[in-house]
């Protein structure tokens, strides 16, 4: 706390001059103290605000302020003026920067100047997109599909297959309806004949009509040695470029793979469907028959083939030698040709 200032008039023993000297001396001491404790100026203000001694203290402080002002002027005059100048300059700079910040692109006229160019270019790109980027996009997509064929198929499979299934189901329904109509109107006798046959055999009469319309046909018959996959006899109705020995080997590999992959070695593969063709497999102990068929391979047709092959095997193939030479091969092939 600053030292309390006493009123010099209270001293009756001292002359006015002495009193003034004393007062001046005390005041200087006080201001020395004030200068030493600059931060404590607030404390003086606190004292001024004290309600009880407001008047007396204001009077004392006015004198003190005057002296203080002089002292400040002597000691810090230049520094205070420099600081004030700096402060004014700083305020001016802050004011100018604020003004610049508020200037928008539009005020400078950029947006209105650039906008037509951007719009024109956008329109040009839109109108000529195919010419400009068509090739690049096509190449990229082609490459992407080529490189990720498996992923593409994986992704497309769940979408395509239900569509194909729905399409096939719808087409079959339409075909069935057409068949029914045709049978009722045109083939009245054959319709009842087929229906009667269906009742006896337990095969749907529509299925029978389908078989008649899409005639099943035997293309090739192979006799294949189970263990080696070697062809031991063949009956070829329609010749093609494919090597039947390789086909026999590949069929045996596929058959073996399917049977072992399913883990049911006692169960043998009996039919392979592909498009409008099918391969019927008839298994025996040391060999199997593979009958390549085209057309609609229906139940009736399969039954017929089964019976024929069973009879053939019983009659001709009771003993097949282990070594397959041209004599054995020729003999088996001739028998097949005769029988079918």
């Amino acid at each position: 706390m600053p030292k309390k200032i006493t009123n010099s008039k209270k001293s009756n023993n001292n002359s006015i001059e002495d009193s003034i000297k004393l007062e001046t001396k005390d005041s200087l001491k006080f201001y020395d103290k004030l200068l030493d404790e600059e931060n404590q100026v607030e404390t003086v203000d606190d004292v001024v605000e004290d309600n009880t001694n407001v008047h007396v203290k204001e009077k004392e402080l006015t004198q003190e302020e005057y002296v203080l002002k002089q002292l400040r002027e002597i000691l810090f005059g230049d520094e205070i003026r420099k600081t004030e100048n700096l402060s004014q300059n700083l305020n001016r700079v802050i004011h100018d920067v604020g003004d610049i910040k508020e200037v928008t692109l539009d005020e400078l006229g950029f947006e209105s100047k650039l906008h037509p160019y951007i719009e024109n270019h956008t329109l040009f790109l839109r109108d000529n997109f195919a010419d400009l980027f068509g090739d690049s996009i096509r190449h990229t997509v082609q490459r992407q599909i080529r490189e990720s064929k498996d992923e593409f198929i994986e992704a497309m499979y769940p979408i395509v297959i239900p569509m194909v299934k729905r399409y096939i189901a719808k087409e079959f329904k339409l075909l069935n309806e057409r068949l029914e109509r045709t049978a009722n109107q045109i083939f009245k006798f054959s319709f009842w004949k087929t229906k009667f046959r269906g009742l006896i055999t337990g095969v749907d009469h529509t299925d029978m009509f389908l078989q008649e319309l899409y005639q099943s046909k035997i293309e090739d018959i192979f006799i294949i040695q189970k263990e080696t996959g070697l062809l031991i006899g063949k009956f070829i109705i329609e010749d093609s470029e494919s090597d039947r020995d390789i086909v026999a080997g590949a069929l045996t590999a596929i058959k073996g793979f399917v049977e072992s992959a399913l883990g049911k070695t006692s169960v043998e593969l009996e039919k392979i469907d592909y498009g409008e063709n099918a391969i019927l497999l008839h298994n025996y102990h040391k060999f199997y028959f593979a009958v390549m068929c085209s057309g609609t391979v229906g139940h009736y047709f399969v039954q017929e083939i089964n019976e024929k092959i069973l009879n053939f095997a019983e009659e001709f193939l009771f003993e097949i030698p282990d070594v397959i030479d041209s004599k054995v091969f020729k003999q088996n092939s001739q028998q097949l040709q005769k029988y079918f």
């Binding site: 080696t228 070697l230 020995d245 080997g249 070594v323 397959i324 030479d325 041209s326 091969f329």
Partner: peptide, 10 residues
Amino acid sequence: TEKNVIKRKM
């Protein structure tokens, strides 16, 4: 005479 043909799995 034609040569005999024997098949072999390799």
